[in-house]
Simulated assay, not measured.
Amino acid sequence: MEHAEAEARLLDAAEALFYERGIQAVGMDQVRAASGVSLKRLYGIFPSKSELVRACLERRDRRWRERLAAFVDGSGADGEARVLAVYDWLYAWFTEPDFRGCAFVNSFGELGAVDAGVAAAVRAHKAAFGAYLAALVADAGAPREMVGPLVLLAEGAMTTAAISGSPEAARQARAGAARLLAVA
């Protein structure tokens, strides 16, 4: 098995296990078993669990933002409707059978205070999401001051959906976002 394949298998297994069970509840041997990669190879690619967690978060960040952008771009919407499409995508994400909240918030809750690398990866993801929303707001001609409240609506919807087990938080956040944009 070549390096790239082993790395992909490790990341696939670790990401699924960490998201389903929590980072601290999953040991490296469980990642090894789920991936089919030897423990020696695992530690050769990721010398520590912290490095594996950061790699999972960085890869998840890219995929999450790509999925969001593809949805918004594919919505056929323009202007403010593109901003609102973010909340439509959140609703679709929240209805996925394996939705367990925001992996970044979950990771920060588990390790943010003790692992600076994890905290940095989470902050980078949240900053990139804020920048994406800021670009949509600018393209819509809405005031920059709208970005913070729109981000908070999205973040609150993520947390509420995870805790409640209902995707309706996305619809409520979308309604709030529409009201904010209407008064802008």
Rank of each mutant, 00 (worst) to 15 (best):
E66V: 04
A182M: 04
L57A: 05
V114W: 09
D98W: 13
H3Q: 13
D61N: 14
E66P: 08
A116V: 05
A119T: 09
S35Q: 05
L153W: 04
A138S: 14
Y43K: 11
L153P: 02
R179K: 11
G130S: 15
G76K: 03
A8Y: 00
A6E: 08
E168P: 08
L90N: 11
A184I: 07
D29F: 11
F129C: 02
V31M: 00
P143N: 08
G112W: 12
R59S: 10
H125M: 05
L180F: 07
A34G: 04
A113M: 14
V118L: 02
Y91K: 13
N106M: 09
A134T: 00
M28I: 03
R171D: 12
A169V: 01
A140E: 10
L42N: 07
A120H: 15
L152T: 14
A14E: 08
R63Q: 08
E110S: 03
A182D: 09
S38H: 05
V53K: 14
L57M: 04
E5H: 13
L52A: 04
L11W: 10
R32V: 11
G156K: 07
L11Q: 06
R123G: 12
V122C: 10
A177C: 06
E7P: 10
V122H: 06
G36L: 04
D98F: 09
S35I: 15
A169N: 03
D73A: 03
V183M: 11
E20P: 14
R9V: 09
L90G: 04
P143M: 12
L150P: 14
I163Y: 11
G148R: 15
A140N: 11
I23G: 06
D98R: 15
A92I: 00
A103D: 14
